[in-house]
């Protein structure tokens, strides 16, 4: 085993164990209850309002590098695309990273296929802007006068531009990120937000499948364990014993 990753490996193994156990338990019992995310309801409200107004909604992942937040965003994008397909509402997607373009197309295509609306899909609405993402995004939002604005992923300063552009048309805005430097702005400017882990956990609420439920349960169980370790570790350090603190970094 490599140096400095033993605890990390144990945590990973525990996570996988709890993940499969919880998933199997959910399969048997069908019971799952978790805190509701206001942001999911707001997404539906935004698409519903856009449908009534005959306006499109806008989606962006932000301009950050391809990271785990995109994985969470794909699930939420599929949800938004399903609603758009169902209500025949356009969704314009602004993308900064090239590798995300084909994945976005597939996510949206899947949603439209599942709604039986593939013939209504506007493939040109998935737009790759590269470095010009920000001016192109605010231009698109302004010209299309979007009724809903979603930005979920690795957000940087573009979230402020997006909020401002969409606020001019009173769009319902839902954003989410784990980038701590942008959370303040989206918390201030949006109708609802996903804070960090919330956007990952939302998947289980959208469709509580065994794998998604198992994933949330495993994260929850281990988070509680780590808060417990944090308390024990702090008490030990206060008493002059740093063994747990050292051990956890091994």
């Amino acid at each position: 085993m490599n140096a400095g990753v033993t605890v990390s490996f144990i945590v990973f193994a525990l996570f996988v164990g709890v993940f499969y156990y919880s998933g199997a338990r959910f399969k048997q019992t069908g019971k799952f209850s978790a805190r509701k995310f206001e942001a999911l309801g707001k997404m539906e409200e935004a698409i519903g309002r856009a449908t009534e107004m005959g306006k499109p909604v806008h989606w962006s992942y932000g301009m950050g590098a391809f990271d785990a937040q995109y994985l969470a965003a794909f699930v939420l994008l599929e949800y938004a695309a399903s609603l758009c397909a169902k209500y025949d509402t356009r969704m314009i997607v602004s993308i900064a990273l090239p590798e995300v373009v084909p994945m976005t197309e597939e996510v949206i295509r899947k949603a439209y296929i599942e709604q039986g609306k593939l013939d209504t899909l506007h493939t040109e609405d998935v737009r790759f802007w590269g470095g010009s993402h920000n001016p192109a995004m605010i231009g698109t939002i302004s010209r299309e006068q979007v009724a809903g604005n979603f930005m979920i992923g690795s957000l940087f300063h573009e979230s402020i531009l997006s909020i401002e552009a969409a606020a001019r048309y009173n769009a319902i805005q839902v954003m989410g990120t784990q980038n701590t430097h942008q959370l303040p702005f989206i918390a201030a400017g949006c109708d609802a937000i996903f804070i960090g882990a919330e956007m990952f956990a939302a998947a289980a609420q959208l469709e509580p499948t065994p794998v998604r439920v198992g994933s949330v349960w495993a994260a929850d169980v281990l988070n509680v364990v780590f808060v417990g370790l944090m308390i024990i570790g702090a008490l030990l350090v206060t008493a002059g014993n740093t063994s747990l603190k050292t051990l956890i970094l091994k």
Binding site: A201, R212, V216
Partner: peptide, 20 residues
Amino acid sequence: LSVVGNAFRVITGLERGHLG
């Protein structure tokens, strides 16, 4: 741990919306 969960689901093919 949410990152771990999401990535694990993707790696094992249990979450595959991005593949259409």
